[in-house]
């Protein structure tokens, strides 16, 4: 690996229906550091967050994670392209067979000929459309899960725990590439799955203990308090062992005791080498946690630097008081 920063964002832009939410933001994040993203409401923090984590598609600008462009990462894989190509081939093949029938009546040759012709047109159309898309750099599907597989995992501002599943199940869901995630494996390779499950379970138990959620292990996540949910989300992220953790307001609406616990967890993880990017309104929390602060206002970066410095920045103070 080079010395390139974990995440580089350059000149990021995004607008919604004429309103520019993020307007040319650039910054860098480093591994083993906590970076705080602050700003008044409507400053474009959450939008930036969604852009970086791949849930929105930027209008302009580049995001490089571990030196790779994330938009490239989220392009469809060859396998997927194959699936879509064969799907359109099949679909148009059917149409071809049908139109062959309509025009020339029913005979095996006509049906087969129509199907082959239709399939050829289907593949052609798909490849053509793909070529055009490639040139324009436009993709219909956003694939945030690819980023997660590369080691960038996020949480949500309004916690999105899986309410109908237990705390343990929530955690067990997270590990990547589980053998048992293939439906056939679920039937054929039950031994391997059981072994894996045991490992994951062990790890999950460790995390549950770390987060002091043990008494809630078999509780449905829907019954947890707001703060416990935040902890659970954090735990789920840990199961993935990511390089960069993106937290969207991890302590909003959480009681002080739990806040301390969450902060402890973040600090100890940072010391283990995880990189963090945190959006947070609680100034005390973010200032004491962060190694670096990026202040945003009206879609633009206003200040960047160590917490003490940013705290003194006049512009920042003004935007907070004014907003």
């Amino acid at each position: 690996m080079s010395d390139a920063p974990l995440l580089e964002v350059e000149n990021l832009q995004k607008s919604f229906g004429g309103i520019t939410a993020v307007d040319g933001v650039s910054f860098e994040l480093e591994a083993g550091k906590v970076t705080g993203l602050i700003g008044p409401n409507g400053a474009g923090k959450t939008t930036t967050f969604n852009l970086v984590s791949g849930f929105y598609k930027p209008d302009a600008g580049t995001i490089r994670f571990k030196g790779t462009d994330t938009q490239t990462l989220m392009r469809p894989a060859p396998v997927e392209q194959g699936v879509w190509a064969s799907a359109s081939a099949g679909f148009l093949g059917l149409i071809g067979a049908a139109s062959g029938r309509v025009t020339y009546g029913v005979s095996p040759d006509v049906l087969a000929g129509g199907a082959v012709a239709g399939a050829a047109v289907g593949v052609g159309l798909y490849v053509g459309q793909n070529a055009i898309n490639n040139r324009r750099g436009a993709y219909k599907h956003s694939r945030p899960f690819r980023l997660a597989r590369q080691g960038m995992v996020r949480t949500f501002q309004i916690t999105r725990e899986l309410t109908e599943m237990t705390v343990l199940e929530n955690l067990l869901l997270a590990p990547p590439d589980q053998t048992g995630e293939g439906p056939l494996n679920a039937i054929v390779r039950r031994g391997t799955i059981a072994e894996e499950e045991a490992q994951f379970r062990e790890r999950a138990e460790e995390i549950i203990e770390l987060l002091e959620l043990d008494h809630l292990r078999d509780e449905e996540a829907g019954n947890l308090s707001g703060g416990q949910r935040k902890l659970l989300e954090l735990g789920r992220v840990l199961m993935l062992d990511p390089d960069l953790v993106m937290l969207d307001e991890p302590v909003a609406g959480v009681n002080p005791a739990l806040t301390d616990r969450i902060m402890e967890a973040i600090t100890s993880m940072r010391d283990e080498g995880y990189g963090f990017c945190i959006v947070e309104h609680e100034m005390d929390v973010i200032m004491s946690l962060s190694d670096k602060i990026i202040a945003m206002a009206e879609g633009q970066k206003m200040a960047e630097g160590p917490p003490e410095e940013v705290q003194q920045d006049e512009q920042v103070l003004e935007s907070y008081l004014g907003g």
Partner: peptide, 25 residues
């Protein structure tokens, strides 16, 4: 199938698709 991790992912999708997406699946 449903008792396996596969079934767990399915139920997670029913619950909230975006979580599954954010977890790299």
């Amino acid at each position: 199938t449903i008792d396996s991790p596969f079934g767990r992912v399915l139920r997670a999708i029913r619950n909230d698709e975006r979580v599954v997406n954010s977890l790299g699946k």
